[in-house]
Each structure stands twice: as C-alpha cells, then as structure tokens.
Design a protein around this nucleic acid. Sequence first.
DNA 1: CTGAAAGCGCTAACAC
DNA 2: GTGTTAGCGCTTTCAG
Lengths: 345, 345
Amino acid sequence: MKFEAVTIKDIAKELGLSTSTVSRAIRDSYEISAETKKLVIECAERLHYRPNPIALSLKEKRSRSIGVVVSEIANSFFSQAINGIESIANNKGYNVMISQSQESLDKETRHINFLASRSIDGLLISVSSETENIDHLMQLHKRGLPIVFFDRIKAEMQTHKVIVNNFKAAYDATVHLISAGYTKIGCLANAEHLSITHERIAGYKQALKDNNIAKDLALVKICEHGGLAFDETENAVNDLLQLQPDAILGLNDKLTTGCLKILQLRSIKIPEEIALVGFTNSELSELLNPSLTIIRQPAFEMGEIATSLLIQQIESKRPIKEFTTRVLQTELVVRTSSKRRVNGH
Amino acid sequence: MKFEAVTIKDIAKELGLSTSTVSRAIRDSYEISAETKKLVIECAERLHYRPNPIALSLKEKRSRSIGVVVSEIANSFFSQAINGIESIANNKGYNVMISQSQESLDKETRHINFLASRSIDGLLISVSSETENIDHLMQLHKRGLPIVFFDRIKAEMQTHKVIVNNFKAAYDATVHLISAGYTKIGCLANAEHLSITHERIAGYKQALKDNNIAKDLALVKICEHGGLAFDETENAVNDLLQLQPDAILGLNDKLTTGCLKILQLRSIKIPEEIALVGFTNSELSELLNPSLTIIRQPAFEMGEIATSLLIQQIESKRPIKEFTTRVLQTELVVRTSSKRRVNGH
DNA sequence: CTGAAAGCGCTAACAC
DNA sequence: GTGTTAGCGCTTTCAG
C-alpha cells in the first residue's frame, strides 16, 4: 500500500544520464546543453516527475513551509487570521501547516514539536489558555526557529509580536456601556495569565475607575477554558447573575456567544434586563437575537502582518536582534444588545 | 537563521559510540546492552534529542501523517469534521495536516500535491465546488495513495466514502415546510456538479412531487461559489424574491446564513413573510433572529469514520479492493424560522 | 554487543 | 557539458 513516486533516478536511467545531470537540467542550470535539457524536461513531464520536498528539506534544512498553531480553527477570529496568513504565505511561495491546540498545553506542545521536526521554517502562534510556561517554545527559539506571536503573546520571548490594543478595546466597550446607562457591568474572561485577558481586564477596570464606578472584583469571572467548556461558562454566568449586573462584557468569542445562549435559555431579555457586549469576529453577530454589540479585531490583517514579519525574518541573512510589536486597532460595532437604557429599567 | 537540531550523530560523538549503536539504543533494540542504553537515553534527554521525521519519511516512505483538504475551515461543518478527524488520528498516532481549497480547484490541486509530496500516508477530502474533473486526485490514487472522500464525493473514484443521506435530508426539510403550510419553496444551491448539490436538489424535488406541488425550476438558484461570494448569493436571493416564494431552503451553511442576512437587510420578516430552513452545523443557529430551523449533519462522526477507514486502509497489508460508502443520517431541528403558517399569511 | 557501510532523493563541490 | 561523490538523519544489513 505504498505509493512510489517517480524520482530523478528513474529519469536518469530512462535517458542514460547521471542523476546530477538530470537534477541540473531540471533546475535549468547554465552548465547543461539546451538539447539535454529539452530531453530531460520532456521525460520528466512524461513520467509525471515531481521533486520530493522531503529529500529537499533533509538536504537544505528548510522547507518553504510555516507552521501555525491556534487554539481553535472553528473560532472566527482564528479562521480569518489563518486566511490572512495563507494569503501572504502562498504569495511568497510558502505553504502553511495549521494545527489547533484546543486550549491544551499538551496538544500545543505536541503539535509544535511535530511541526518543528517537519522542518518548518518558522512558526506563528497564539498560545493556548493553558500555556503559562513556554519552555517548549523557548527551546526551539533558542535553536534558531523563527517564531512570531500574534493575539495571545508571551512577553518573555524576544520576537516579533502582532496584537491589538486590547486595553483600549475593552476600555472603549466599557465606556460605551457606561454612557448607555449601564453601571453594574459584569465581565467574563478567560485564563488569567493570558496576555489578552489581563490587558482586557485592565481596560475594563480603568473605564470603571475613570467613570467613578467602584469596581467589584466579584463581577469579573474567570473561565479557565476560555469558553470551550460550556459547563464552566454556564457556572460563571450563573454566578454573575446572582450579583444582578445590568450588563455583561464578554472578553472573547466563545464566552460572548456562550453567555448569549445562557441568557436566552434563562429567558433573560437583552438588553432590557441585561446588556451584552463582547469580543467576536463572527459574521453572524449582527444576525443574532438581539444583534450583538461587538468588538471586532482586524484578524485577517493580523495574520498578514504576522506572516510578513515571519517570512522577513526567515529570509534575513543575519540574525535579527530588533523585534517589533505591532499594535492594531479594534472596532466597536454598536448594535441592539447594548441599546441605551431608559431610566429606571 | 537556520535552526540546527540535535542528531543521533551528536549523541554518538558525545559518547564515543557509532550512530548505529545510538539508533538501536534509542529504539530499545535487544542487541544493545542495558548499560549503553542507559547512557544513550540519558544523553539524548540531556541534549533534547528529537528524532527527525523527515529523515524517517525519506527512508520509510511513510510519515504517520494524513492530509485533509476542505473548502473552508471557517465553516462549522468542516471544523467539526476536522475535530472528529483529529480525535481518531491522534489516537492512532497520526498527525493531521489541514488545508483549505477556498472552493478553488487550483488551490485544491496545489495543496494536494504539496501534501502528497510531503509523503502523507493518506488523504481525506471534500472537494471544492470548482472540482469537476478529478485527474489530480486520480493520479495520486493510481500511484497508491489511499484517499477517502467525505461529504462532497466523486462517484468516479473507487474508494471509501462517508456521506449523509442528502436526499432524505432535503426531502424531509421540504416536507416539513410543506406540512407547515408553505407551498412556494425556493431553493439556494451550490455548484451543480457537486454530489451534495444534486442529491439535495433531488430530495427537494421529490418532496414537491410527492405532495403534488408543481415544481418550478426557476425556484432553484445555483450559486457557483457556494455562498463564499456574497454578491453572488445576494443576486440569487434577489432573483428568487422576485418570484415571491413563501419559503427558502438553503442547501448549505454559507447560503443559509447569507440568505438570512439578505432577508434581514431587506427587512423581510421571517417566518411571517417568508420561512427559512437550511443546512448548517453552526452552534449559533438557535441564537439567530429568528432561531433557525436547520438540518444538522453528524460532522464529528463523519470525520471519525472517514479517518478510521483511511487508517485501516493505510495499515492494511494487502491492497483493498472492496470499498464501502457509509451513509449517515441528518437531524432536522425545527425552530422559529419555519413556524406553521397561519392561513392567508 | 557494537561498528562500518549502504541507501532513501536530492544537490553541490569537484573532477574530467 | 556531464559524471562522480559525499552528505543531509536515520535505519538496517552485514561483519566482527
């Protein structure tokens, strides 16, 4: 059940040439006569010859492919980012190998090692919500694997990073809620050690402070699994509801939609009884019931930029010492779910 | 900027052994003394040695990895299927390489060739909506690459296939609409030559026939891009609306949600003015406005089954001659968007 | 029990 | 202009 490819050797045998001649002819080397070239090319076509990149990788220690690790491809933010990644990568002749950590450090580690050992030329990663320690990345990085972080970054590592202004995004969303008349604003966040989590929580808190609203720490609920475990989200929302907030801010995609679902299940009217605003890139957000006020990230663009930086680093002759952190802006799209509150209710 | 991995050679040098001894020690060969083994293992750990699968692939002509090609990972059906694929594959020690064709034959072909040349052991594919001719697949298949189709299959190729009962799914959905009082049912379909398209259209037509509703061919609108090009969908829906249907059946995910969006834009009330039912696996379908009546496919399970069949074929000693086509059942989830019609309107 | 050597597909000195 | 050879990392005869 093995599948045997045509090799350079087959062509050589067929034509009574040496493998090196064939190799050179195929790569259009100046040392080969036009005649031989024609012969070789013709024969290669006839036999459906395809160069074996595995052999190439072995030899050249590079593969013109880059690896991507995200927590979940079903997440619209990540699938859009991946599209951005592919658009640049393909454009520059790189292939993209995608894998998902499912928010598990173990899976993340396994995928990264797999990718690294398949001799990818570089890695794009948004770490899992379990990833506190990044030894698994550090090791590869020290050995020279170019790595670019996007979205969920780790400060410890000296590399290029592409993020959004999470602080401002959460700040603006919170201010929007406040100015729409909401004052007791709950917050659903994922794992605490993630960069995006504390930046977003910080923005939320600052907005409360700037508007003289006493911050109540109980109103911030952490979901370690970032919404992937529905039970956890449900408990968090239920706990939050005990405190009778008049609005909820979802700090990521799955938490926001999960919250919406729970509120619907409990027949809680949005925004009459409680307002809902959240981070999400889902194209369905405006079609939801009610249409959702969201913070949208420039996912596609983030993918593009991260990939450009990565490829630039891969192709640079000298080791790069100066690393940039690109910070993009988010967009607040106001819809029904955070409609201005009429007084009293 | 190259990243040098620790090789068996480094260990050999470190310990003053030959590479073959190290190789055998690492693979726990009976020929190696316990002492040497301990030494080698210890040293390998210390240097963070990882075997190089590229070298292995080159040698063994297999890689314990399988390739997956789908049209779009952002599609909930496919992302769920991929989760099913990964669950089985990882379980059996295989890695999964995912790529998306974006409904483009060209991209599909490039990805497949890339995967094949990376010496994947097998391929799982749901073809793009542009894929009529499958020479690119046939070639690899003839040379012995195990291929399993799922979802969008091609009859020409003798392989395992995993699909749902598309005919019945569309039939049942149409009957449901009819019995809810809708009689002029429009239909949004993707590229005509796709297996899923004609099976679903056939089911739709049969349901009309069985209920003595004259079928009006104009009510079936084809979208070549399967909903990926919003303009195309918009034109199709607008054309359809000219004919004043009282219900629309969306034959895939993007077409269904695209249609919902257009109806909302035009402030057409669902289901009062027009009912909407469609194929989708999105977890948001019940949260939409209105909550959507859907046909849900067992995506995860399809991924699992397809992967089991593929791995079984990969690991089979003798070439497989008998191929199965597994047909799973879909589920019709009735919600508000196809609520029973009150007479007159 | 361990080492030397060949070979997987390909490229790149180095010959001639 | 073309052939020979070594080597990328690893396994696997075949010798010792």
